[in-house]
C-alpha cells in the first residue's frame, strides 16, 4: 500500500504530513510509558521484523499481491504508541529503497502507521474487552484487528483520493476496487499477525503488551489484604 509521489496533490500531501507529525508527536510522548530496558530492544526488533515481513509479497489471485502492514502486529506486541513509531521507522528506512514517495511519507504514515494501529489495536482491544484475556483470545483478536486494519487503510486512502487525488475518477469504482482487494490482503495480514503474536505469546507471554492484563485479577487481590 506504499503510496508513491504523484498520486495526491500538494494540499493533501501537506495536510497528511501535518496529521502524521501530530500523531508521531503524540506517540513519542506515549511511547515513554511503554518502553523500558527490556521492551525498548524488543520494539527495535519488532520494527526490524516488520521491515523483513513487508518484503514478502504474497499472491492473492488475479495477478495481484499484498504484504504485511504490521501496525496491529507491532501494537499488540509492544503497545500502540510504540507500534505507530515502529511502522513510521520502517517507512522511513524504506525510502532509501525507493519504496514509498518522499512527499507521500505523511500519507503513508497516516495510512499504515496511524490508521493501521488505530483500527488494528482498537479492534484488538474491543475483542479482548469482551472475551477473557488468554493466549488464544489474544491470538484471535490479533487476527481480527489486523485483518480489518487493511481495508480500513484502503478506505482512508479512497477518502484522501476524493479530497485531492491527481486523477478525476469515479470514487465508487476506486473504493470498490481498493476495499475488495484489501479485504483479501487483510486475511494475509491477519494470518501473519496471529502466527507472530501467537508464537511470541507461546514462548514469552510476559513480553506481549496485549497480554499484560492477563495476570491482573490475581495481582489486584494481594494489595487489598495490606489495606492500602
Amino acid at each position: 500500500m506504499h503510496v508513491p509521489d504523484g498520486f495526491f496533490d500538494a494540499p493533501v500531501s501537506v495536510g497528511a504530513g501535518v496529521v502524521a507529525a501530530a500523531g508521531l508527536g503524540l506517540c513519542l510522548r506515549g511511547a515513554r510509558r511503554e518502553l523500558d530496558d527490556r521492551t525498548a530492544p524488543l520494539a527495535g526488533l519488532v520494527a526490524a521484523f516488520v521491515f523483513a515481513a513487508q518484503m514478502i509479497n504474497f499472491p492473492i489471485g488475479a495477478g495481484t499481491s499484498g504484504h504485511l502492514m504490521g501496525g496491529a502486529l507491532a501494537a499488540v506486541l509492544v503497545g500502540p504508541y510504540t507500534g505507530v513509531l515502529c511502522i513510521a521507522v520502517v517507512l522511513l528506512v524504506q525510502i532509501l529503497f525507493a519504496d514509498g514517495g518522499i512527499t507521500a511519507y505523511g500519507i503513508n504514515v497516516t495510512l499504515m502507521a496511524l490508521v493501521g494501529v488505530l483500527v488494528g489495536y482498537g479492534v484488538f482491544r474491543l475483542v479482548t474487552a469482551v472475551l477473557p484475556t488468554r493466549r488464544s483470545t489474544v491470538t484471535a483478536a490479533s487476527f481480527l484487528g489486523a485483518a480489518l486494519s487493511v481495508p480500513a487503510s484502503a478506505l482512508v486512502f479512497v477518502g484522501l483520493f476524493a479530497i485531492g487525488g491527481t486523477t478525476d475518477l469515479s470514487l465508487g469504482a476506486v473504493a470498490a476496487a481498493m476495499v475488495g482487494v484489501h479485504l483479501l490482503i487483510g486475511l494475509g495480514e491477519g494470518l501473519i499477525t496471529a502466527v507472530t503474536v501467537g508464537g511470541v505469546a507461546a514462548v514469552r507471554p510476559d513480553l506481549v503488551y496485549g497480554l499484560r492484563d492477563a495476570g491482573r485479577p490475581l495481582e489486584i487481590r494481594k494489595p487489598q489484604t495490606t489495606g492500602a
Binding site: M1, I56, N57, P59, G63, T64, G66, H67, A154, V181
Partner: peptide, 8 residues
Amino acid sequence: ASSHPDGL
C-alpha cells in the same frame, strides 16, 4: 516473494 503488483 510474489512479483505481482501489490493491491494499490
